[in-house]
């Protein structure tokens, strides 16, 4: 077994755009669930809207890359308002079902042949990179060291994603420690109590939903930046994986979602490389096909999610006293 290659691939996942996309989306969920107590199970829908919003505006309406991103943000705001206006009054678990259904509706509408001219239906969207790459200030060439050796385009994508991430982390941090964040956390604990103090709970929840949704949409944009928009990505499983990453790190923290997403992807990358290798070269997994071996890692995700929620609901970075679950 080539351990050097496996470790290199594993370490490389830390700087992968997919990891950044996960960090962004889980920060959005942290805003929704960790701070405001909103059970959003439609984060994959926000990501899809971000990715499609960007790709469609660049491809079909010839907008520049930054215009496409503004469209993504605007679309996420509209989606959040459409979703939130009627549902933010609902009980937590009802909100979960509504958001998961809304994300699925969005996905089906992106997938259907009916809007093929815009969405590319099952084939998705690709070839929208020119404008973004033209803005790349890095001269042509290959840079970096060890596993982190990339072309100028790959670096540009990563640097841009990191910049977005920095802004989002700052926003979440600044908001969570302000009086606004105090109101939001109060709503998470008991919205009636906050209402009785004269705060417009609905408006605060809507603001939190929009902000978290925009973070999610930026996650979708970053996911789409290096390659293509593929409709099979934005399924409910994606939502569940992001939840896993969030709860792993700690829902009510700023650092937790970052840590959780990175651990999630490093583990995924490690298992993706190591399990098939174990199956091929004998050992404990000798009897498995390589496909079975790689399926194992998703089984582990499921088991991991159960164990976290049962035994460490505050996550790795969370305060032990600070369990964020509504009883």
């Amino acid at each position: 077994m080539d351990w050097i290659q496996i470790l290199s691939n594993t370490v490389e996942s830390i700087l992968s755009p997919v990891t950044f996309a996960f960090v962004l989306a889980s920060l959005g969920l942290a805003m929704h669930f960790g701070f405001a107590g909103l059970l959003n199970f439609g984060i994959a829908g926000f990501m899809a809207i971000g990715a499609y919003g960007y790709a469609i505006s660049v491809l079909r309406f010839d907008l520049p890359w930054w215009g496409g991103m503004l469209v993504s943000i605007a679309a996420a705001i509209v989606f959040a308002i459409l979703l939130g206006a009627p549902t933010l009054r609902l009980r937590g678990d009802y909100l979960a079902i509504v958001t998961i259904a809304a994300a699925e509706i969005a996905r089906l509408l992106f997938l259907t042949n009916t809007f093929d001219d815009f969405t590319g239906s099952a084939s998705g969207l690709f070839g929208y990179h020119d404008s973004f790459r033209a803005a790349n200030p890095i001269p042509e060439g290959t840079y970096g060291f060890g596993p982190f050796t990339y072309s100028e385009t790959d670096w540009w994508v990563r640097i841009f994603a990191l910049a977005v991430l920095a802004v989002v982390i700052w926003l979440l941090w600044a908001l969570s420690r302000s009086p606004w964040g105090r109101v939001i956390k109060g709503i998470r604990e008991d919205e009636d109590a906050v209402r009785a103090l004269g705060k417009n709970v609905f408006a605060y929840k809507m603001q939190a939903l929009i902000i978290g949704g925009v973070f999610g949409a930026m996650g979708g944009v970053v996911y789409a930046l290096p390659s293509a928009v593929n409709p099979t990505v934005y399924v409910t499983s994606l939502t569940f994986f992001i939840w896993t990453a969030l709860l792993l790190g700690g829902a009510a923290t700023v650092f937790g979602p970052v840590l959780g997403s990175i651990i999630f992807w490093v583990l995924q990358a490690f298992l993706t490389n190591v399990l098939p290798a174990l199956a091929q070269e004998g050992g404990i997994l000798e009897s498995l096909t390589s496909q079975q071996a790689s399926t194992l890692r998703f089984i582990l995700v499921g088991i991991g999610l159960m164990l976290i929620v049962i035994y460490r609901p505050q996550g790795i970075a969370g305060d032990k006293r600070e369990l964020t679950f509504v009883k």
């Binding site: 059970l39 937590g92 678990d93 979960a96 499983s237 569940f240 939840w243 896993t244 709860l247 079975q292 399926t295 194992l296 998703f298 089984i299 995700v301 499921g302 088991i303 991991g304 999610l305 159960m306 164990l307 929620v309 049962i310 609901p313 679950f325 509504v326 009883k327």
Partner: peptide, 22 residues
């Protein structure tokens, strides 16, 4: 709590689903 239970059921769903695929 009901929310925790719900997320446990999601974990179980993922586990079972991929066991089937396995």
């Amino acid at each position: 709590g009901i929310v925790q239970l719900m997320i446990v059921s999601i974990g179980l769903a993922l586990t079972m689903r991929y066991v089937f695929q396995f």
